[in-house]
């Protein structure tokens, strides 16, 4: 088993709010994870990098308000490739509390909206990775 948790950080579509993703990337790096900062990707390219790089976690940063459709499409693409159980899928950005349940139902393992702290994000990701590895 790998020692370090490997994470790929992705922005889908045209949404270019970049400080969220760079900040969380740094937080994860400082917490000892290996972070692949992939930036703008399509769903297909993001999944193929995730596979090639054998990551544990895929992080989607969505600040456009379109977190539900993007997450749904991403999960569908993972399911088609029978890869959903291979990765922990986490979503961060401007996500209202009202959408958290819907995202969880769609298949997001971790959801980090405004006000999430660095500790919360790191702890949650570590727990999810642990569960997945068992």
């Amino acid at each position: 088993m790998k020692d370090k948790t490997r994470v790929i950080m992705v922005k889908l579509g045209l949404d270019g709010h970049w400080r969220g993703i760079t900040t969380v990337s740094l937080i994860l790096k400082n917490a000892g994870m290996e972070v692949i900062f992939a930036g703008f990707q399509t769903i297909e390219s993001a999944i193929s990098i995730a596979e090639q790089e054998d990551v544990d976690v895929i992080g989607l940063s969505i600040h456009s308000g379109a977190h539900i459709p993007w997450t749904r499409k991403f999960v569908e693409a993972l399911n088609e490739r029978k890869l959903k159980d291979e990765f922990v899928l986490v979503v961060g950005g401007v996500i209202p509390d009202a959408d958290v349940d819907a995202l969880r139902e769609i298949g997001a393992d971790g959801i980090y909206g405004p006000g999430s702290t660095a500790e919360e994000i790191v702890r949650s990701i570590q727990e999810k990775v642990k569960e997945k590895r068992i």
């Binding site: 579509g13 045209l14 456009s64 499409k73």
Partner: peptide, 20 residues
């Protein structure tokens, strides 16, 4: 919207119009 900002059209195959 982001398409207008970025300079692309809703029928461009490189974007997901439903989302954007």
């Amino acid at each position: 919207d982001l398409l207008t900002f970025y300079g692309t059209d809703p029928d461009d195959p490189g974007v997901d119009a439903e989302v954007e």
